[in-house]
Nucleic acid binder design. Structure first.
Lengths: 219, 219, 219, 219
DNA sequence: CATGAATGAGTCTTCATTCAT
DNA sequence: AATGAATGAAGACTCATTCAT
């Protein structure tokens, strides 16, 4: 008599499952709100529940525990980002320069690069050392992203004009720039940071390494 | 007739004051141990005390509160690093290339760049968004370090051969590389990270931007 | 279409609010038990909780802090007493002698004058000097009570036969007698104190000041 | 070889004993300071030591424990007062009216009736219910004082003109007035209380009970 | 489903007491 | 004799989790 769930890959379909997914998503959102405002250490079940407009009991109903919710939140973050940059690359054509530009555009897209998201990301990263689960989730994301960046930069560096560029070093500089420049948003005056400026910095960085490959027009 | 205390510049000299400073330092060390092992959220006064081999009461005897200890720990970290890079620059001569190399050497000096220190640094950074005091302490450090890096890189970029290098973008890439490359140490297999390799990466990065200015010899 | 809540003046009516009020009242009662048995200094949240048959966490669920509970307890005491004597006066008719007798009757009513209540009252009074909040709460009670007593005694003293009675002095003697005679209950042998005897003492005192105004019958 | 201590009634005589007595007295004074300022609950060994200008260790050197110091302080208070009123009575001649006046004068003598002393007395009294030792010390004081007051008042009441005065009731009113009127000093505005006024109140009270026995001249 | 009252383990902090100097 | 650093038990408070409704 049990309902068939053969099509589970396509997402939950029974009303029950749909509600379950929706609630989990709401709680993850609320969790991000709380982390962004109060930090990881200041995030309590009560605050998450309040932000979600639900009661405290709900967390343990939809997640095994508070830390399961935290982990799911981190996973959600990682997934969103990975989906975004993979999509961007696949849409950017074959030129590695254009593909790198696409990575930059994704990294500083307002939907991914905003105070809330960056705050949460930062908070999790600070605890990676102490919580192995976090590290595992983050580590995978980075590995793939770096491999891809390395590939693109190596292709550019293979061109004769850029023979002096060390692909590994260039990749690491690029990756760290993209990943940590957003932290400027967390400073006291958020006005100091601007997405257009950030993209421009990255392009100018790439142009400094690979003259002639990147147009200097700011977007 | 009063005893001369001309050498007071060298720190507190009364035995009492000396003990006080020593204990505070021991507790800061123990605090770093705890943060490195258990994270900021997992650091309790009990763990700090245990790590220091003292009783729990001691923390509130030498620090106003647990958070005062944490702040002192962060301040200690920041001071150590600032002292180190300022000293290194002043010893490096006048050539901006040599001075940049000195910054790299300091950043990956074993006494400053090790799993413990980097873990602690990372943990604090993760909470900066939620704790304004942390941000203030960290922010000052960064501002000075970046200003100095900017100056050195601008000097190099002013040379005719490097006219295509954007100083701002290059500086940002450089400081982010130096500041965040150490995070690789926190990965599961710390064997993947090697101080010599890290220094090499940074030099190769600089050489990629400014060909001819940096010898690639050291590896 | 909204449900009418016209009778809200009569106190909280939603079940939730009712539970809240009931629990707060239970905790205040338990707090009085603890103070009576262990003193103010010996009253801990653990003891209060135990006396209430609840867990320690409950205190901070229903009161902002332990001291908020203590203050609420004192306030409860003060309110009860004020309500009682005001009611007694209003029911006692117009004769000041009868009204003073009513004040006496209230002061030594078993529901207000018993070992538990007097103990608690005494404990709070001992700390009024150090805790300004306590003083404020107690001070108001006294001011009103004394003003009323002064008025009644002054009326009696105005009668020709009692011209020699100093109203201020008589009032002060009267209120101190009423307020502190109950402390006899706290002595080792509580048998030494008897409510009937106490009332009799007060009446005899009034009769000594104002002969002929008070019948000595009741004993 | 032990020194003879036969004259111990006259006080300690060896230098050692004299120092011991002096220190104990200093600590009791400091203890009163602390209680007056911070209350009984806010009185810590550290505060007492600071007030005495000595170190914390000293308390346990001169007293068995903190509570032994507290008890000694209470005892000191009680002894001072008892010595004072017994002396006053013995110097007041044979007339009960004069002797009662002497009791009043002692009760409101500036050296016994001042904010500090009254505060301390009040604080102890508040804890009598919970600490049997306190009650015992206080109880003895009261018993003797009341017996004496009763005797004097009974003598007056025996005179024909005052036949309507109930000795017991009058005594109780008198005693409570004398003992608790000083509490007015603890109110917010200490200006409201004045020793001359207080003495006047007591005399006027006695004159109201026993017309013709007390001169109304305010001292 | 959802609530939120209730629990109690865990944390920080205070403070009387000890003891080496 | 006196100090005050160190201890650790005890207290108030927080908060993840449970469960009756």
């Amino acid at each position: 008599m049990k309902r068939d769930r053969a099509n589970s890959r396509a997402g939950p379909s029974s009303p029950k499952e749909r509600l379950r997914e929706r609630r989990r998503r709401e709680l993850i959102d609320a969790c991000m709100d709380s982390i962004a405002r109060y930090g990881l250490g200041g995030t309590t079940v009560a605050r998450v529940a309040e932000s979600a407009g639900l009661s405290v009991g709900i967390i343990n109903f939809y997640f095994e525990s508070k830390s399961a919710l935290l982990l799911a939140t981190l996973q959600h973050l990682v997934d969103s980002y990975e989906r975004a940059w993979r999509g961007a690359i696949s849409r950017a054509g074959d030129d590695p320069a254009r593909q790198l530009e696409a990575l930059v555009d994704v990294a500083f897209d307002a939907s991914l690069c905003n105070v809330r998201t960056v705050s949460v990301w930062n908070a999790f990263w600070g605890e990676t050392r102490a919580r192995e689960e976090y590290l595992r989730v983050c580590g995978d994301r980075d590995a793939a992203f770096r491999a891809e960046s390395q590939r693109l930069i190596a292709e550019l560096a293979a061109r004769e004009a850029h023979a002096h560029v060390d692909p590994e070093a260039a990749m690491l500089a690029f990756v760290h720039l993209i990943e940590w420049l957003p932290d400027w948003m967390l400073g006291g005056d958020s006005a100091a940071f601007d997405l257009d400026w950030a993209r421009s910095v990255c392009r100018r960085f790439l142009a400094s390494l690979f003259p002639g490959e990147f147009s200097e027009t700011t977007r």
